[in-house]
């Protein structure tokens, strides 16, 4: 049982939760994730770690209301307990000093991107970050990202904040302007797919962090399998980051919808 010590609504659908988890706070590295479960009938749900405070023994998770389980988690209040929380899971990001790194985050993908941005900065890289969302309200963690980036470019679909346009438009401008040595992209699968296509054109090594469906998160179930370079990999133990140029994104997007009908049934039932 892990106690929630802080909660903030970023928008109607996106919530920041700070929860007690001293061992995870100490052990987690950029790229790691956790699995949470709310209630005795609850589902196991993978969530990325946006930050940690070793002294306070807490970790920060950012949750987007999507289905029954994420809604139940977002409905918890400060002082409530998360039934189960386990981690850190997955392989950490391989961070080196490579020169200039382009970090691209879309929507709640900015949450797992933050520790990676921090890591790259600490390793001595020049960090340029592109944040993208549908509109101004959905841009999250801007201050924290700015603190750890040499330059930040904000793109919104509707132009309500930063520049109007897709994440790839902002990226391409930067790529044409200066030498980029490495790129990382985290966000909706469709966004990551187009980021990967773009950086492939310019031959920039690129990693993408995947948010596949999982049950246990320890390699046991295989729900998170993804094709990378023609081979089946498990996102939980082989990932969550893979060479973005080798990921079969179309299959990945299809697999994200593997329980669409069943999940909608559960949601309808829950909202009745």
């Amino acid at each position: 049982m892990n106690k929630i010590v802080e909660k903030e609504n970023f928008s109607e659908k996106v919530v920041k939760i700070v929860v007690e988890a001293p061992l995870i706070a100490k052990a987690r590295k950029p790229g790691n994730f956790v699995i949470v479960r709310v209630g005795e009938k609850g589902e196991r749900m993978p969530l990325t770690i946006a930050g940690a405070d070793i002294k306070k023994g807490t970790i920060t998770i950012i949750v987007q209301k999507m289905g029954v389980s994420s809604i139940k988690l977002c409905d918890l209040k400060v002082g409530d307990f998360i039934t189960d929380l386990v981690g850190p899971l997955g392989k950490p990001t391989e961070i080196h000093n490579v020169g200039t790194v382009l970090c691209c985050g879309g929507g709640v993908g900015v949450a797992p991107l933050l520790p990676i941005v921090e890591g790259y900065k600490k390793a001595g890289n020049k960090v340029i970050t592109v944040l993208a969302a549908r509109n101004k309200d959905l841009i999250i963690l801007e201050d924290e990202i700015r603190k750890n980036s040499d330059e930040v470019l904000i793109m919104t679909d509707d132009g309500s904040y930063g520049r109007k346009g897709l994440v790839t438009e902002g990226m391409e401008e930067i790529i044409q302007r200066e030498q980029i040595d490495e790129c990382i992209t985290i966000g909706p699968a469709i966004m990551m797919k187009f980021c990967a296509l773009l950086t492939k054109k310019y031959e920039i090594p690129t990693m993408a962090s995947l948010n596949s469906i999982m049950v246990d998160g320890t390699g046991m179930c295989g729900a998170c399998r993804v094709t990378v370079d023609g081979k089946t990999k498990f996102t939980c133990v082989d990932g969550p980051e893979f060479d973005a140029h080798k990921i079969d994104f179309d299959e990945m997007m299809s697999r994200l919808g593997g329980y669409k009908v069943e999940e909608k049934d559960k949601l309808d039932h829950f909202q009745e």
């Binding site: 209630g39 009938k41 049950v215 069943e262």
Partner: peptide
């Protein structure tokens, strides 16, 4: 890797550990 194809581990875990056969479980099963 098509949808609807899963390991016995996933299938049985959803039902046995997560109780997905019951209506009131939050875990879906195919």
């Amino acid at each position: 890797n098509s949808n609807g194809i899963l390991s016995s581990n996933e299938y049985l875990t959803r039902v046995n550990l997560m109780g997905a056969d019951a209506e009131d479980s939050d875990t879906p099963v195919l």
